[in-house]
C-alpha cells in the first residue's frame, strides 16, 4: 500500500510536468508562430487602437449602427463594480415556460419593430428576440441585418442601396458551403460603415 501511495504521488508529479507544463508551453510557442492573430484573440485595430475582437459582440444601441443579438450578460461587461470589468459569459438560462423569457422576447420584438419602423405585427427574425448562448454572439442572421438597413441609411444620410450593398458583401455563407448557418458579423459591418459612410457631425 505504501508503495502504491508513493507511485501515485510520483505519477501525479510526472504528468503535471508533461501535460500541465511542457504540453501547453510548447503548443503556445508553436501556435503563436503559426497563427499569431487568432492565437491572441482575433483582435481588431482601428487607428492603431484595439477596438474589439472579431469574435466577440459589442453593444450597439444607437440608430447609426447595426444591432447585435440580445445579450443576457451586457456583452461581457460588468459596469456595476469599479468601472468596466469582465462579466462572465452567460446565456439567459430561462426555460421555455419562463415568464421572464416571455417578457424579454416581447420587449425585444417591440424594440426592434419600433426602431426599424416595422408594422406592429411584422415578423421579427428569431435571432433578434432570443438572447444568445454566450451573451457574446458576434453574428446576426442576414435577414436581421437587411431589416436594419433603412434605419442605418437614414441615420447616416447615406443611400439605402449603398448600405444594402455593404450588408450583402458582409454576409458569410455556410463555411465550405455546408457547415453552419449564413451570418453577418456585426462589429466588422459597423467598422466598415464608419469607414465608408462616416456620421456627419
Amino acid at each position: 500500500m505504501f508503495k502504491l501511495i508513493l507511485q501515485s504521488i510520483r505519477q501525479t508529479l510526472v504528468w503535471t510536468v508533461i501535460t500541465g507544463m511542457l504540453y501547453p508551453l510548447l503548443m503556445t510557442l508553436g501556435l503563436q508562430l503559426l497563427f499569431r492573430n487568432q492565437a491572441t484573440g482575433s483582435l481588431v485595430e482601428r487607428d492603431g487602437k484595439v477596438v474589439g475582437s472579431a469574435l466577440l459582440a459589442q453593444q450597439f444601441q444607437g440608430a447609426t449602427y447595426f444591432w447585435p443579438r440580445p445579450s443576457a450578460n451586457s456583452y461581457g461587461i460588468s459596469a456595476a463594480m469599479s468601472g468596466n470589468s469582465l462579466a462572465a459569459s452567460s446565456g439567459s438560462n430561462l426555460g421555455p415556460t419562463s415568464t421572464t423569457l416571455q417578457t424579454n422576447v416581447r420587449a425585444a420584438a417591440k424594440a426592434f419593430r419600433d426602431a426599424n419602423k416595422l408594422a406592429a405585427d411584422a415578423p421579427v427574425p428569431a435571432d433578434m428576440v432570443y438572447a444568445s448562448a454566450s451573451g457574446l454572439d458576434p453574428h446576426i442572421s442576414p435577414e436581421a441585418a437587411q431589416l436594419q438597413v433603412a434605419r442605418v441609411a437614414d441615420a447616416r444620410k447615406a443611400g439605402v442601396d449603398d448600405i444594402k450593398a455593404l450588408v450583402e458583401k458582409s454576409i458569410e455563407p455556410p463555411q465550405w458551403g455546408f457547415l453552419g448557418q449564413s451570418r453577418v458579423n456585426v462589429l466588422m459591418l459597423n467598422l466598415a460603415l464608419d469607414e465608408k459612410f462616416p456620421v456627419k457631425k
Partner: peptide, 27 residues
C-alpha cells in the same frame, strides 16, 4: 490532443499566455 489543437487555433481559438486584452468600444 496536439493533432486537434492545431486546426482549432487556426479557426480562432486563442493560445496565449499574456493578460486579457482591453478594447475601446466603438460605441
Amino acid at each position: 490532443s496536439i493533432l486537434w489543437a492545431i486546426p482549432l487555433a487556426w479557426q480562432g481559438v486563442p493560445q496565449a499566455w499574456q493578460n486579457y486584452a482591453t478594447a475601446k468600444l466603438v460605441e
